[in-house]
Amino acid sequence: MTTTTTSPVLTATGVTMRFGGLTAVQSVDLDVHPGEIVGLIGPNGAGKTTFFNCLTGLYIPTEGSVAYEGTVLPPKPHLVTQAGIARTFQNIRLFANMTVLENVLVGRHTRTKEGLWSALLRGPGFKRAEAASKARAMELLEFTGLADKADHLSRNLPYGEQRKLEIARALASDPGLLLLDEPTAGMNPQETRATEELVFAIRDLGTAVLVIEHDMRFIFNLCDRVAVLVQGQKLVEGTSEVVQSDERVIAAYLGTPFEGAPGAEEAAEVEAAEAGASEAGATTGAPQDETQRGTTARTEDGQ
């Protein structure tokens, strides 16, 4: 699937984000090519979401630049979306008191241009644009399977459907690249599989996808390429196999063995943790496990 011949939709070059003395993201380079699904993984606090915020203009990177289809993006969220990068949020940020349809219509904002005057005068152009927006929004709701709930308030949707609606809303801006921030967090295995299907379908529509996720099965099923971010730095980037077998990745997630510790005991521990990791995300306890592992990794790296 990986196509290196085409020019990338997204080129992040040396993106660095510092908050005072803390370097959250340190000179990360990342390319996403058209039709690709790229995963971004890493322990909690590795800087994945910060990196996303740098890409979408919510943060202004301290150093480095982000380019969409060769053009460097200004660090303004609405201009980034207009250029063609849409995103979802880690903690769902729907417009809770708007209907499902209205949420998607807001997503159409950049692809329509009717201003106040045309709204007040209600000319034929306005009506046509409204009807077209509505038709496109319904199409997307159809696509995500929410069409029958178009008139519900988005706050009343069940959790899984709220996640879907966020994706539909992001797709409404006809993006060339979709950034998904933990799209399956808190989902049960069936919902996770459904999301997997949805992401494949989005890719088939011609939209490249960059996805942050903690559910390793989800990531390795889905992604053509996976980048691993640890402590703000990109550790490895490659296919699932490469990443899975990389010792540094395992160390980052699970920590390195203590010197002088009984080998057999350690090995058993690692095995148990691996078994846990393969189920990560499927159980609600997963994020906590992740935290512990992340902390372990960090302390040991510091030594």
Binding site: H78, R87, A96, N97, E102, G107, A119
Partner: peptide, 24 residues
């Protein structure tokens, strides 16, 4: 209308609204 929806979106969640391409 489009602008009215943008107003409500800004009121609901300004960060999400700008991420949807609205010039807040």
């Amino acid at each position: 209308s489009r602008i009215g929806r943008a107003w409500v979106a800004i009121r609901e969640d300004e960060t999400a609204a700008t991420a949807m391409g609205i010039n807040g």
